[in-house]
Amino acid sequence: MFIIQVGSMRGTLVLICQALLWPAVSALFRVEVEERAYEAEIHRDINLGCRFSTVKTNTDLSVIWRRVEPKPDVDVYRLERGRVNHNYTSAVFKERAQLIQDLLNNNRAVLRLTKLRIKDSGTYQCIVKYGDEGDYKHVTLNVTAPYSPIQKTVRQTGRDEVELSCETKGYPSPQVIWSDGQNTKLTERINSSTRFTDEDLINVLSKLMVKRDLVNNYTCAFLMKGEIRKTATFSIPDEISPDGSNQSYVWIGAVVVVLLAIAFASVVLHMRKNGQKTRRNESTKCCLPLPLPSPATNADSLMTVDENRPDTCGTILEEKDNL
């Protein structure tokens, strides 16, 4: 059967030939994955590998690694006939993706990804071509982040109840379970919320309201794939502050004490300055010169003037000598 299109007969024949010959080519040149699925932690490095049929020389060898899921497709690394081509490489991978070219001699196309991010997760395609022959396979990568230590908080909301909260972050999203000292599940009573961080981690905050005067233990647990990864236990009422107040009151009290100390110091300094000023004025009065005697002035009058000098002058002079 012949398919003829006016003006494009040659192109149509080429497509028909490729479709007919591709199974035969694939049978001659094969690509196989070293592992179908990979898992690694954030900020770590990983090697994704595939093997290909033996070739005579690497000069005509082309290796293309692409991430095809999630959409849109992006180029991760491209080696075309022995030469690196970054013209199509995504900026996300340009500085973090490298093909280990020494392993090409062992018929291995190994892609090395460094400083992994959560968004690196997905399906990758390994395409290897040699001349006119080629084949490809897919591998999956799952980037995770271990959950951080749980931050516990006990907050009084009223006279009879307190709020217990557990907070942690990681990836992927965990399952949160609360239970009491009798291992009774309290999941229906909890209030949990999530938000994404700058690194695409999931911050989980889970809260539970309990009676403050009921002696019991309460445990929050974070599960991943059915396995408990993090737990924290509250002992009530032991972990409730004795006065039932928040730590904010402690800070308020500290601020008040500091302000009182500053005010007291200001008053003392002000009193000292006023005292020094008073003594300085009195000293000035004492230092006024005696009137010069006139020819008519007799010795008795001079003695009378000296006797009328204020007594404080001698005291001030003595204080100066002591200083």
Rank of each mutant, 00 (worst) to 15 (best):
residue 207 K to Y: 05
residue 197 T to C: 04
residue 48 L to I: 07
residue 56 K to E: 14
residue 161 E to N: 15
residue 37 A to T: 09
residue 80 E to F: 07
residue 308 N to S: 13
residue 49 G to Q: 10
residue 142 N to M: 12
residue 148 S to D: 13
residue 202 I to K: 02
residue 212 R to G: 00
residue 45 D to Q: 02
residue 262 I to G: 02
residue 242 P to K: 13
residue 35 E to A: 12
residue 279 R to N: 09
residue 177 I to T: 06
residue 62 S to L: 03
residue 113 L to I: 09
residue 302 L to H: 07
residue 190 I to H: 00
residue 182 Q to F: 09
residue 94 K to Q: 10
residue 165 S to D: 08
residue 99 L to N: 07
residue 301 S to Y: 14
residue 144 T to Q: 12
residue 228 I to W: 01
residue 121 S to E: 06
residue 311 D to E: 13
residue 176 V to Q: 07
residue 218 Y to W: 12
residue 18 Q to F: 02
residue 237 P to N: 11
residue 282 E to H: 02
residue 204 V to F: 05
residue 116 L to F: 08
residue 234 F to D: 08
residue 317 L to E: 15
residue 60 D to R: 00
residue 286 C to T: 01
residue 231 T to P: 06
residue 321 D to V: 15
residue 189 R to P: 04
residue 218 Y to M: 07
residue 77 Y to A: 10
residue 180 D to A: 11
residue 132 D to F: 14
residue 166 C to N: 03
residue 170 G to M: 04
residue 90 S to Y: 03
residue 211 K to D: 15
residue 120 D to W: 05
residue 27 A to H: 10
residue 127 I to S: 11
residue 75 D to M: 13
residue 61 L to S: 03
residue 115 K to W: 12
residue 73 D to Q: 13
residue 98 Q to R: 03
residue 323 L to H: 13
residue 319 E to D: 15
residue 12 T to A: 03
residue 202 I to C: 01
residue 200 D to Q: 13
residue 259 L to A: 13
residue 137 K to C: 10
residue 85 N to L: 11
residue 68 V to F: 00
residue 66 R to T: 08
residue 201 L to R: 01
